[in-house]
Design a binder for these strands. Structure first.
Lengths: 350, 350
DNA sequence: CATAGTACTTATAACGTTACAAATATCGGA
DNA sequence: TCCGATATTTGTAACGTTATAAGTACTATG
């Protein structure tokens, strides 16, 4: 108290306030200010209070660059956004979800775009190399995903949207695609459909397997023929799918039921069938996985099983935060349950 | 040369290489290494070459935190993503565009989500306060946009997607909504429509004015009645628009032409009209502004005027880079021309 | 009253980089 | 041979923060 320096007003009025400014005002040492702001128990409660009050008053905000340089922690989480995820607001919902999970913490969200045609490992390597984040979230995992291997080798915290098939555990959030596919088959059968086709993602993705399992399980159980198109997948352009649908719609054994794990594939198929004079509800049916209300507006009677992307984002954020806190596990592994609420069945069960 | 220190191998083999590592290997001073890496002409070409070769070899990457602390430059550009921009991949396209503009520079892209219902100034204040970026991009500008005022006051570089009506100039990229609306009216007239309705964004946005001007100009010129719905706007939920459309479709003076500056509004309207037994092409027509191929798949005969969002992002990035280089202007102001290519008219011009 | 402990505060150094001023070497010309 | 000019390199300090170790003052204990 007695050693309080004269409040050198010229120093702390001009530019951005730092801990030094607070130190000068309170007459404390910069170290004390730093520790007070960190809530160190070894600093007297009264001091802590005083410091944070002054900090508040003069509008002090910590310099993240300095913190980062000193501690090595970026306090940033990087979400890698895949260009294929454009589908009806997927990216935005995911971002919003993660951002919500991070709100209240001092972590920032950084979105790294993954360029179309680029190697998926690139953004991950880049982030690790340049230490641009403390944790990474990415999607579209593969059974033996290179990114997972890479990050695990370096003990770099991450969470994935989608599972892998490695022998070791890691944090993830996934959607129960197996159940989605299985229930979809049952629903289509309920509507009298027998030639049920499923649109699968490219087979190097893990969720290809899950969808496939669910579909095949139901198909076998019900004694149906499986119908998996070749040359067409969930990532195909709409015009491509449209062309394909238009063609097969005119064949004698054209599918009368579709399982579409994405909205756009359904739209393209419905359009292709329409060109061939076939209407959804009369000539064929479909169960669609969607994450927005858009589809329902286009076809209000469509059977739709929803996936809550925003929730997935929030879970991913939360799981990653936990992983960073306890880097050696246990790993949070969350599987989202499909929300199945079909419209009531009409009487046209022929 | 003679003063070369012995290559203290223990120092630069373990952890991440820094300029110090390079200095030790080359026998130069850290300062020289720093300036060589910056390409300073005052450093001998031979030295520059040698330094960058060693840097490459040992996999040196500059520590951004240290650079940032020292220079005050974050080398980050922040894109503020509005939740309303979810519409069919808007966000992703914009991100991709900006990212492309930034590729090759040492700027990073950081996406800051704007929460639904939050004050638009919040993310901007936050970025400036915490100095999280050197430049900001945001959209959905208002005529007297608070964010523009705020950033200009602080001479903080920014570019907007959309114009303002301030007396001073600033960098922006905008779409020619006036032309879009005007041309849409003409197109609908060409198709024999006379009761032409326009869906406008909330009237606090600048592009509300532009759309309105274009629409009104054409309406007056052609001697038509204007039809601007109340209670419904471009940001309304699809179910809301659907309800509205369903109701007016049954009125005697129901519009037979719609100008939809967004895909979802069209879908909701088409659905509402369909409930009332009215079909697009027969009972009404629409011109839709879209930025994806999705709509075309749903209705291949639809008149659609496209907006290239990815290009907008690229322009925004480029403009902002220029603004940061020359903070006092001249400001890049780009207006994107609508891409108008309608399907050939059928003969049903009654 | 000395001593150990407790409660709290502080000086010093360092993270990796760059701005600045200063130093050294090299060279042509007087 | 000496001088100034040019070319090139270097030492020092600083950006704002925090970890570490060391300090001070006060209290309790024997």
């Amino acid at each position: 108290m007695s050693t309080q320096k004269p409040p050198n007003s010229s120093t702390h009025s001009t530019s951005k306030p730092t801990q030094k400014t607070i130190a000068e005002i309170t007459g404390l040492a910069v170290t004390t200010v730093s520790r007070a702001l960190q809530g160190d128990e070894k600093i007297a409660q009264a001091t802590r209070l005083r410091v944070s009050k002054v900090a508040e008053e003069i509008g002090y905000v910590p310099d993240r660059a300095a913190q980062r340089l000193r501690t090595g922690k970026t306090k940033v989480i990087s979400l890698i956004l895949d260009p294929h995820n454009e589908i009806l607001g997927f990216g935005n919902s995911l971002i919003t979800g993660v951002a919500h999970a991070l709100a209240g913490t001092d972590y920032h969200l950084n979105v790294t775009p993954q360029f179309l045609g680029g190697d998926p490992i690139e953004p991950v390597e880049y982030i690790v190399r340049n230490k641009l984040a403390d944790g990474i979230i990415f999607s579209r995992t593969r059974p033996f995903d290179e990114r997972v291997r890479f990050l695990r080798e370096r003990s770099f915290p991450f969470t994935t949207h989608g599972r892998t098939e490695f022998g070791y555990q890691h944090s993830f959030v996934d959607y129960d695609n197996e159940k989605f596919a299985y229930e979809s088959v049952l629903r289509l059968m309920q509507k009298g459909r027998r030639r049920i086709c499923v649109i699968l993602p490219p087979n190097h993705f893990t969720f290809h397997q899950h969808l496939n399992y669910g579909y095949m399980r139901a198909i076998r159980q019900e004694g149906l023929q499986c119908y998996i198109p070749e040359g067409i997948n969930l990532d195909s352009d709409m015009p491509e799918i449209f062309e394909w649908a238009q063609t097969i719609a005119r064949t004698s054994d054209a599918p009368d039921g579709f399982i579409c794990p994405g909205e756009t594939s359904f739209l393209a198929i419905a359009n292709g069938y329409r060109q061939a004079g076939k209407e959804r509800g009369r000539d064929f049916d479909a169960v669609v996985k969607s994450s927005s209300q858009t589809l329902h507006q286009i076809d209000s009677q469509i059977d739709n099983i929803s996936e809550d992307i925003r929730q997935a984002g929030a879970l991913l954020g939360a799981n990653l935060l936990k992983t960073m806190l306890h880097p050696d596990g246990p790993f949070e592994q969350t599987i989202q349950d499909p929300d199945i609420t079909f419209p009531a069945l009409k009487s046209y069960q022929d």
